[in-house]
Write a protein that binds this DNA or RNA. Structure first.
Length: 556
DNA sequence: ATAGGGTTAG
């Protein structure tokens, strides 16, 4: 039997193997060796199999690996245009695609055609890579490919993504027969620039709209915080689909209206509830501080026996972190590990560390942190917060300096975490140092949160006057968190005069927050001033403020 | 064989 014949016969099963081996260069090379040993590995006369290997290996890394380059050099010369085009359309990294494209121009006797450009333009749009896209446009004009509907539409999309709506518009105006996709691409460009009026005008002028057009419009209204407009469009929509529903659900969730979100979700056809819809609901509840509802939705999802994706488990873990339930965390941890979730995804890893730390398993959080090949700021922050939570502020501060040594640039969240770690550990000088580093070296202007941390740092260390002076001189409007931190410090250091002053300010800022009244009453109680204690409690009753159940009245 | 749309962490 000739090896050529055998290879052709086994092509489908090899393709199946290739599809299964996704995400691992190791698997790919293993299969390559397997075929080589049986003299089955495709030489130039087996371009189809070669292109399967190529598209997989090129999709594994942003830049073409040496392995990919060696495969490319095995391509037959001249290479059929069809082969190149199908290879181009299977790639998702711009540098690899450009390598393939340039090879196409040198290896093929024929110039690129209508099918070669759109996949590349799409990648330029996604980045967006303006210069590359613009030179592709020049090339398209030179090759006289720019009159093609598909090519022009891809460029309209590209200019829209680059926020150059004028270029997109003039291209659109030169088209003799724009398709519904061309219209939609232009509309989406206007929506990206928050120009709802122009988008709506085009939408009304369009000869025919399809499902995507409606989805783009609804999403545009949601992203521009016009939920009523989105809802109106949704109600007018002839045939609702899951994308439109999910856009609207996400809009309600971001606006904090989980009631409307839930209503829509419940009305959805069960068949229409795809993974997007489920994960939008789960993370919506998690972000709105309703972890139990998030778990309930996840449980419903679990019953459908469908495969979770990364977003589902990230939302789920966020909910579990809020509950701090260790046995639930252990269940979720093993669920994530056994469900073919991509645990190299940085968001998944960060959430895993965060969940384990917040639920009390620091050992596991620590282990996961050290198993990451490339740590990022978020993974550091999760572990640092975990240490703070367990009273190990100084360990968190050590981790922060380790992070800087590793060459990572801290962002505003990282500074919030390290400042609260310093205050937790009582490291006043250290905290001031980082605060100055944030402004002077990292060029981050401090937010209300950062100042609140600094006030907390000073207050806890007993430097109440300094903290009060700081809060009075803030360049940003101090939010309740900063005043609250100072009130807590007054309570801790039994400073009645300043405490009264600060509490008065807080009662104006957030009259319904029972915690502030409780703190003031504790300050009085600590000084045995029981008359004032009952005055504060009367004030609470008058204003109808209720103590949050589970928060103690008694100072510990 | 080619173009337009949706979810996630610290």
């Amino acid at each position: 039997m000739s090896s050529r014949y055998e290879c052709q016969r086994s092509l489908p099963s090899i393709c199946t193997l290739l599809r299964r081996s996704r995400r691992s260069l190791g698997h790919l090379r293993q299969l390559h060796c397997f075929l080589l040993r049986r003299s089955l590995f495709p030489q130039p006369q087996q371009p189809l199999l070669l292109s399967h290997f190529l598209s997989l290996s090129l999709s594994l890394s942003p830049l073409p690996s040496p392995y990919s380059l060696s495969l490319l050099s095995a391509l037959p010369s001249p290479t059929p245009l069809l082969l190149f085009n199908s290879l181009l359309s299977s790639l998702s990294h711009l540098p690899s695609s450009l390598t393939v494209f340039n090879l196409l121009r040198s290896l093929s006797p024929h110039p690129p055609d209508f099918f070669s450009l759109p996949p590349l333009i799409r990648l330029c749009a996604r980045h967006p890579a303006f210069r590359t896209g613009a030179s592709l446009h020049a090339l398209a004009i030179r090759l006289r490919l720019d009159s093609d509907v598909f090519v022009s539409t891809a460029f309209i999309h590209f200019y829209g993504r680059c926020l150059l709506i004028g270029s997109a518009r003039s291209l659109f105006d030169t088209m003799s027969q724009p398709s519904a996709v061309s219209w939609t691409a232009l509309i989406s460009g206007y929506l990206r620039l928050k120009d709802l009026k122009s988008a709506q005008e085009l939408f009304d002028q369009m000869p025919e709209r399809n499902a995507v057009t409606w989805n783009v419009m609804i999403d545009g209204y949601v992203k521009n915080a016009d939920l009523d407009g989105a809802r109106r469009l949704f109600d007018e929509m002839p045939e609702k689909n899951s994308v439109a529903c999910t856009c609207l659900i996400d809009g309600f969730a971001k606006a904090g209206d989980m009631g409307s979100a839930r209503l829509l979700f419940d009305q959805m056809n069960h068949r229409d509830r795809d993974v997007f819809a489920w994960s939008t609901m789960i993370s919506g509840y998690a972000q709105n501080g309703c972890p139990c509802d998030a778990l309930f939705i996840f449980n419903e999802f679990h019953k459908t026996k469908r495969k979770p994706d990364e977003c589902i488990v990230v939302g789920l873990m966020s909910a579990c972190s809020q509950l701090g339930n260790l046995s639930l965390a252990k269940w979720i941890d093993s669920y994530v590990m056994t469900r073919s979730i991509n645990t190299n995804n940085s968001r998944v890893l960060t959430s895993l560390i965060d969940m384990n730390a917040k639920c009390g398993d620091m050992e596991r959080a620590h282990f996961l942190f050290h198993s990451i090949p490339q740590r990022n700021i978020a993974s550091y922050c999760s572990l640092m917060q975990g240490y703070c939570l367990h009273g190990l502020g100084s360990k968190a501060v050590d981790l922060f300096s380790h992070m800087i040594q590793e060459g990572l640039n801290p962002d505003e969240v990282a500074f919030t975490v390290v400042l609260s770690a310093c205050s937790q550990a009582g490291l006043v000088e250290e905290g001031k140092k980082y605060f100055n580093m944030m402004r002077k070296i990292c060029n981050i202007s401090p937010s209300g949160d950062h100042y609140a941390c600094l006030v907390d740092l000073l207050g806890r260390a007993g430097k109440l006057e300094e903290a009060y002076e700081l809060i009075k001189l803030l360049p940003v409007e101090p939010h309740a968190g900063a005043w609250g931190a100072l009130l807590g410090a007054c309570r801790w250091h039994s400073n009645i005069e300043l405490g009264e002053l600060v509490a008065k300010r807080l009662f104006e800022l957030e009259p319904q927050n029972g915690g502030n009244y409780v703190a003031l009453s504790n300050i009085y109680a600590n000084a045995n001033r029981w008359g004032e204690v009952s005055e504060v409690r009367c004030m609470m009753n008058e204003k109808g403020v209720r103590k949050v159940p589970g928060c103690t009245w008694i100072m510990t």
